[in-house]
């Protein structure tokens, strides 16, 4: 990435930002070059994750939250992740449909991302996309993901504040919210509070929170009601995001969480890189030979791995 492109990106030029995101999404050398040029300018944005089951109203909520931040003068980046079809490799990315109010505002940059069926890679692509938006000077970066498993939990680790969105009528109480997802919530939102049974969803979530043991100074996630399509409860949600940020700051948690996140990222990328190099360095026939030995019960998996790694390193 040349000097001029970096400067134009830092000035918020949409084309430069868009192409840098495409590069980090592709991964590989191109992604490395972009991150090498931009990393020093990152670490400023407040990253807010928004996750929850499909149809709970995440995109609508993101639209409303973004509008409120805009009124306060903040520039925003939005990343909306949707699943790639495992059968065709294609995806329909429809989150912009609910974010039309933000169109025509050059203080907002929206990017849709498909998961591209690559779990570890997705976490990296998302985290690198956040870096690009951060370097481009967006003070707030909102990341919408479908709360459906480990990859979303990994993505959520990039956020300073994570909103988990539920809605009434999605089936049994909080069944829609998977256990692991509840764990990462800093703020719980029951959207579609215009429905009658919203209160029982709130009660179910509260009960679940009460089951979790708490140390004295721990953050207790509030359970908030919103009606995103009517813009109701949004100011409250944004106020709680601010409170959570203040909590992180006053307890020096921003620094410690940043380090935990960097360590996790280091481990993740190192793992992937080691794997790639290992596989590249070993010819297929060698792996086949080890598999044969395992099949014949002459070697167990640990011995085979020892042979595999030992040989490439000596």
């Amino acid at each position: 990435m040349d000097r001029a492109t970096v400067e134009s990106l830092r000035g918020g030029n949409s084309r430069a930002v868009a192409r840098a995101i495409s590069a980090v999404e592709r991964g590989g050398v191109e992604a490395r070059e972009v991150i090498a040029a931009l990393f020093r300018y990152t670490g400023r944005a407040h990253v807010i994750g928004v996750t929850g089951a499909p149809g709970t109203g995440k995109s609508t909520l993101v639209n409303e939250i973004a509008k409120l931040y805009r009124r306060r003068g903040h520039r925003l980046g939005i990343v909306a992740v949707d699943p790639t079809s495992p059968f065709t490799g294609g995806a329909i990315l429809g989150d912009r449909l609910r974010m039309q109010d933000l169109a025509g505002d050059d203080g907002v940059f929206i990017r849709s991302m498909a998961t591209r069926g690559n779990l570890g890679g997705l976490a990296s692509a998302t985290s690198d996309t956040i870096k690009v938006l951060d370097a481009a000077g967006f003070a707030i970066v909102l990341v919408e993901t479908v709360g459906a498993g480990q990859s979303e939990v990994d993505i959520a680790k990039n956020a300073h504040t994570t909103l988990v969105v539920d809605a009434p009528g999605l089936g049994d109480d909080i069944q829609a919210i998977k256990a692991g997802i509840l764990e990462i919530a800093d703020i719980l939102i029951v959207n579609k509070a215009d429905h009658d049974d919203a209160n029982s969803t709130v009660a179910a979530l509260e009960m679940n929170l009460n089951l979790k043991p708490k140390a004295e100074n721990d953050w207790r996630p509030p359970v908030l009601k919103t009606i995103a399509i009517q813009g109701e409860g949004i100011a409250d949600a944004v106020e709680w995001i601010g409170k959570h940020r203040a909590y992180l700051e006053s307890n020096h948690l921003l620094e410690s969480r940043e380090r935990a996140r960097l360590r996790a990222e280091l481990e993740l990328v190192a793992q992937r890189e080691l794997m790639t190099r290992l596989v590249r360095g070993v010819n297929g026939s060698k792996i086949e030979a080890l598999v044969e030995k395992m099949a014949a019960r002459e070697m167990d998996v640990y011995q085979a791995v020892e042979k595999l790694i030992g040989d490439t390193h000596s």
Binding site: T84, S85, T88, G90, A91, I92, G94, R96, L97, S112
Partner: peptide, 9 residues
């Protein structure tokens, strides 16, 4: 999408 493309709608 079924043809393997990413469609922003």
């Amino acid at each position: 999408r079924d043809a393997g493309m990413e469609v922003i709608y």
